[in-house]
Design a protein around this nucleic acid. Structure first.
Lengths: 210, 210
DNA sequence: AAAGAAATACCGCTTTTGGGGTATCATCTC
DNA sequence: GAGATGATACCCCAAAAGCGGTATTTCTTT
């Protein structure tokens, strides 16, 4: 019996999952939560074989949650569940250590297969995204994964930009001169090779920098 | 026993729903489909008390499907199920004759309550949107809903912005005047209530608009 | 037929950005 | 101790953004 912890911000979905599995399936939902921060305490008190986690969650997203769990030393296979077949999400999930990736429009049998395989530390990709993965790794593996190294200060600047602050406001927030902010911005734009701050934010969110 | 037909483009969700209900709940899922066009033939062969329908479906959306069913003379309460609390969607659903409106992040107990009430031709609104409804009918049309409604054109503009294009470049891409692009940008910024395009991109990615 | 969005286009104006250069100082690394 | 990196700060300037209007056309809904 594979013991599963469901992390999803839609209780209805989680409830559904939970009651969907029958004894014959060999899968049992032992716990569920809508809050990523609760996971460690659950793992400390409950025996769990696999975490089934939604990527699209509002407060702390699935990928960040996964990082949190793995960084705390918990060694569990994590199966990511999502609505979208977004390459950037898939990539981030894999980089951070997901064992599998399945779409919410999968069938029950596919989900059971995914849970069974990933619980045995085998990788699972939903058929719909398999081709996408192969294409990606055949095409531009070495080209695109270059992530320029940004300093902590630079990341702070980006976060402020994402909140809608202009150079002057950022200067006030960080207690530095507006000139300094402008210099940082210029350096960031060069490092990331983008033309506008809109593109900068898009790129940073894609690459998971902020 | 309330006999329910589920219309949802995510088989996993439908499966989950189906197996979630236990005999004690007084609810039974008698059929399910991912295609709105199949509904008439199902209704002709199966006894159904209530239709539980997802609004966000790709081919033919929930509201159009509901219209189709009601226009064909089938007289059944329809409970709409959705991810978003968009005022426009709620309004349209009610106008076209939905009996109730529930969010996908509801709990099982709430869903049971919703199904029970709507099957008796009583109206049901999910608590989360109740206040919104009241505000709306009180005249506060500018309710800050989860996602402001952007037109397709506006979304195109945002996508270009995210790619680093400036107004002139966007004008060329979309074959319109730079003035038009600027007007669109201004409208978008107001709708989304953001101060800079960097914040705009951040907000759009957060809310899943692009 | 009237009202309402949505897309289109234009004018003028101020502020901000993005890009160029330069420079100091502290820290970290080899 | 030399060299690299990061954070800080300043100058200039053209281009773009952002914000205020107004207005026409088309399409949908009432």
């Amino acid at each position: 019996m594979i013991k599963v912890l469901i992390v999803d911000d839609h209780p209805l979905f989680a409830e559904g999952m939970k009651s969907m599995f029958k004894p014959g399936d060999g899968i049992e939902v032992v716990s569920q939560t809508i809050n990523g921060h609760e996971i460690p305490s659950i793992l400390d008190t409950t025996e769990v074989d696999l975490i089934l986690m939604d990527i699209d969650m509002p407060v702390i997203d699935g990928i960040a949650t996964m990082e949190l769990i793995l960084s705390k030393g918990y060694d569990l296979p994590i199966l990511m569940l999502t609505m979208h077949q977004s390459m950037k999400q898939i990539k981030r999930a894999l980089e951070k250590g997901a064992q599998g990736y399945i779409l919410k429009d999968a069938h029950k049998s596919e989900l059971i297969e995914a849970i069974t395989l990933t619980s045995q530390r085998k990788n699972y990709f939903h058929p719909k995204i398999n081709n996408q993965i192969f294409d990606y790794f055949r095409g531009k593996r070495s080209v695109k994964s270059d992530m320029p190294e940004l300093s902590e200060r630079e990341k702070e600047i980006i976060q402020c930009l994402a909140k809608g602050q202009n150079s002057k406001a950022i200067a006030n927030t960080l207690h530095i001169s507006e000139h300094t902010v402008k210099t940082h911005r210029r350096n960031i734009m060069h490092k990331m090779n983008v033309k506008t701050s809109a593109e900068l934010i898009n790129t940073c969110l894609e690459k998971g920098i902020i």
